[in-house]
Structure formats: C-alpha cells, structure tokens
Amino acid sequence: MKTLVWVEHDGGAIKDATLSAVTAAAKLGEVHLLVAGKGVGGVAEAAAKIAGVGKVHVADDAAFDHALAENVAPLVVELMGSHDAFVAPATSNAKNIAPRVAALLDVMQISDILSIESADTFTRPTYAGNAIATVQSSDAKKVITVRTTAFDKAARDGGSGTVEAVASTGDKGLSRFVGAEISKSERPELTSAKVIVSGGRALQNGENFKTIIEPLADKLGAAVGASRAAVDAGYVPNDYQVGQTGKIVAPEVYIAIGISGAIQHLAGMKDSKTIIAINKDEDAPIFQIADIGLVADLFKAVPELTGKI
C-alpha cells in the first residue's frame, strides 16, 4: 500500500505531529509525504530526511499557503490517484482538510485512530474516549487522521527520500486568508511537551494564571494548558484548551490545578503517564484518575511548591 502523509509545518519547521503520522503510515505501507505551501523547499528537504520516507511531493504555490482546505483538498485528491491512503495527524489544519478530501474521493474518513489492526481495521475513540470502537473500512482508498499521542514519533533523520515537485492545482477562489493571531510563547508546545501544568476555573482570572501557573511551568520547563472553563472565561487563549474538543495531550507528567475533572477534560489528558492533581475538594472527580493528589488551596500550595523546587 502507498500512503500519502500530510506534513504539518509552519513554513520553516516540521511539527512533531507529522512524525507520529509517519509512524502510523509506515504500518500501512510505503510512506510518501506531501509538503504544501509557499517557499517550502527547505521543509521538503527536511521532510526527506525523516526515517522511512520514500518520496516527498512538494507543491510550492501561494494557493497552498495557510493550508486553505478549498485549495489543498483538490491537490490531495490529484495525488490520491497514485496512493491508497491519505494519512494526516489530527491537527487543526488536517481536521479541516481531510474530510474534504474524503468526500471528494467518496470515502468515509476514519478520524483520530489509536491503532492499526490491519490494512482496513482501526481503533478510534468515541464518546469523549469513553468507548473505543474497532472499525473496518470497506472503502478502496483510506482517509485517516491519527491521534498523535497514540503513535511514537519517527526519527527526524536517517531517511533518504527523494523530493519531487508536483504541479499546482491552483487557487479555487472560494476562500481567502485574511489574518491570524498566533500565540507566541517560549514554552514548549502543548502537544509535544514532556510536562504540562494546566489551570482551571479556580484560577479566577488571567492574572492568576500569570502569577501562579506560569512560574511553576517555567520552573518545570513545562507547557501551560487549561480547562474549557478557564478558556471560556478568557483567562487564557483558546489554543490552551485540553480536552475532547480541544488538544489531546499525553505528557510524562500532567499537573491539573483547580480543575474538577469533567469527562470532556479527561478525554484530552487521561493518557498522560503520571497525573498530578491539586484541588481543594477531596471529592473532585480528577482524583479518581490522578496518580498523585494533593487536597489543598491552590493559592497557597502552588506558590509554595514553586518556591520549593
């Protein structure tokens, strides 16, 4: 089977999510990559070095800048003439593009796979991860998004793929990129951090995130996450949300501070290796899945903790 993997990049660097998708694709067969964007020659060179990669298809055109689904999907469909599976990490770009590809190919996408049981059978989470379904696809071509926390990352080097330019399928003129407000941070990215410190509604405001959560995160070299309640209340930006409908994370250590542990939040972090919870309510549901729990007022305990490490 020939797979085509969506390379998630920011114009310069390849995102870790791509590496997990490569590992998944390698279980299906030959791994080809697709690098789309404007001025992405360097990205393609780097992509060719990823371990196990055969060919890198590069589509260098302004039409693919910002990964507009309306323009990228026809490009993928074109390439799927000679591939059997489109495999993408479940990033916001790929979640936008892949179903558009699937519908154009008349296949049913398999979202967020956790494992590959055979060439046509996969497991995937449903109901906020409370039910794991094993599904078999009858479609000739597969369109798959990959839960990146469920697959190891392929090595960034060791590969010797060939780079091949593909003709642009052009700008379909349906949509236009207007602008972006991208959060800038020196901290590690949420989805690839080894340690995450997350805050919930109990933080009360954005200022407390800065003075209580961030210093602890800085000491631990951790990324900062949040519950939906903290995001909705405007304490932190939307891209901090961990959960069923936010980011899925599985760090070595996840520290949940002032988060109750609703199923929608657990869905995004319960595969973390070690879960630590700090909550003043000893009956908070988060303690049912925490490996280490501290029943305490976060406004006292967290500064004390930060001071002692």
Binding site: V107, M108, I110, T121, P125, T126, G129, N130, A131, I132, A133, T134, V135, Q136, S137, S138, D139, V253, K270, I275, I276, E282, F287, Q288, I289, A290, D291, I292, G293, L294, V295, A296, A301, E304, L305, K308, I309
Partner: peptide
C-alpha cells in the same frame, strides 16, 4: 455505511493513586 463497527470496548481504566499530605511530599514525588 462504509465503516463497520466490529466491537466497542471500554478504554483501559486508570486507578486512583495516593494522596500526599503536603507540598513537601509532593516535591519528593516530583
């Protein structure tokens, strides 16, 4: 349907761990 659900299972269960008494114990765990 194009996808056939062969089976549905519960995810692996996490068991609650221990509570620590204070911040010092938490530091030791970290």
């Amino acid at each position: 349907p194009r996808l056939k659900t062969l089976s549905v299972a519960e995810p692996p269960k996490r068991v609650a761990g221990a509570k620590v008494a204070d911040v010092d114990e938490l530091v030791a765990k970290l």
